[in-house]
């Protein structure tokens, strides 16, 4: 019943065992020990389990591991490059856009997808795009500020290069 498949996770080929009911979330966490992707609700309502699949935010708790085959998956562990934080991570730190930090990976990945499609979002656009992500600590205003800050950082670095 179990089959072995390969996934492209953070630019690396990783082999996993899947059964028909294996979720991407469980494959990432239990088999690959990529525990930055969190369980929050198991029904796609909180987005703590968000990963990027071919650049789009995806609820890994509702995604079968097999459907991730052939796609490029990015988890929070793959966001910083060569030990350098991504501007979105840096902005979350500087704006102190978290308290307990449990929702943070999902927030950062969703924000990455937002900024890719909209490099200069308004407050309303941010709220709309991020509506599916829950922060029970209630740091929403800081997350909005962090996304604005990240957008500025990314625009200015794009301008320089």
């Amino acid at each position: 019943m179990a089959t072995e498949i390969e996934l492209d996770i953070n630019g690396k080929r990783r082999a996993i065992h899947t059964e028909p009911d294996t979720t991407l979330l469980s494959a990432l966490r239990d088999q690959l020990d990529l525990t930055g992707t969190k369980y929050g609700c198991g029904e796609g309502q909180c987005a703590a389990c968000t990963v990027l699949m071919d650049g789009s935010p995806r609820r890994s708790c509702l995604t079968r591991a097999t459907t991730a085959a052939g796609k490029k998956i990015v988890t929070i562990e793959g966001v910083a490059q060569n030990g350098r934080l991504h501007p979105v991570q840096q902005a979350f730190l500087e704006e102190q856009a978290f308290q307990c930090g449990y929702c943070t990976p999902g927030m950062i990945l969703t924000a990455l997808a937002l900024l890719k499609s909209n490099p200069d979002p308004s407050d309303d656009e941010i709220a709309q795009f991020m509506e599916g992500n829950i922060c029970r600590c209630g740091t929403y205003p800081r997350i909005v500020a962090a996304i604005h800050r990240a957008a500025r950082m990314m625009r200015s670095s794009a301008h320089e290069s």
Partner: peptide
Amino acid sequence: LKINGVEFVTGAHRFSP
């Protein structure tokens, strides 16, 4: 800033689960 904040924005921090 949060003293171990980097661990949270990189997913490195290990919560109980």
